[in-house]
Design a binder for these strands. Sequence first.
DNA 1: TACTAACGTAAGTGTCAACTGACAGAGAGG
DNA 2: CCTCTCTGTCAGTTGACACTTACGTTAGTA
Lengths: 111, 111
Amino acid sequence: MDAALKALAEPRRREIVRLVWSEELPATAIAARFSEVTRSAISQHLGILREAGLVHERKEGTRRLYRSNHHEMARLRAYLDDYWTTGLERLRDVAEAAEAQRESRDGRTDT
Amino acid sequence: MDAALKALAEPRRREIVRLVWSEELPATAIAARFSEVTRSAISQHLGILREAGLVHERKEGTRRLYRSNHHEMARLRAYLDDYWTTGLERLRDVAEAAEAQRESRDGRTDT
DNA sequence: TACTAACGTAAGTGTCAACTGACAGAGAGG
DNA sequence: CCTCTCTGTCAGTTGACACTTACGTTAGTA
């Protein structure tokens, strides 16, 4: 899960995931979209994405077709949603409520 | 924006943001929560988070109080939400609709 | 002034990541 | 078999990053 987030922190890889989201594409076709880097670099990016479980790989003859792993992407999204809400907003509410209680009860506290 | 995502790809920094989400804390207090690394490391993490605009810094005497920048966090969240929906799901819908049209029109296509 | 607490920061190190260029294997077609 | 295409991978370079140690700075205090 941590690997997935780290993988998507790279703009190039976010773009790759975007490319193969709705279309299954061979490695060469994916690499062709990136004129700034070599095919080798894209191949390595694909390896990282596959390792992180963000893309699926399917062999067909001499080609390897890639497509996004929607399920894993959904998991990552859920993880982040949990981070925003449970981890932060809700924590803030709890803290504020607790502080309000402390203030109205003791007027001062620590820890 | 990209710096923010990259900053949050680091687990330690995610934890820091969590710590100062509801409470404004001095650097020392934050560092005290992390027994595995030195105060210097945390200070550098705080610098990166500040650079990415994810935390606010306020000087008070000899101390520096930190707290999360909710606004920037919301922006990042919106950016990701846009990535999931507009960038992916919607794109998939469009692609699937187009493919369905192609199939019912030609019966077969490539590229 | 001298001392101390709270910080940031420079310097140095080990590790990891992105990239290029060269090479190897696998499958298709002559 | 030979050749061409598609593709992963290895070797090597460069730069970024997380971390530690040491030092400098600033503000409060005796």
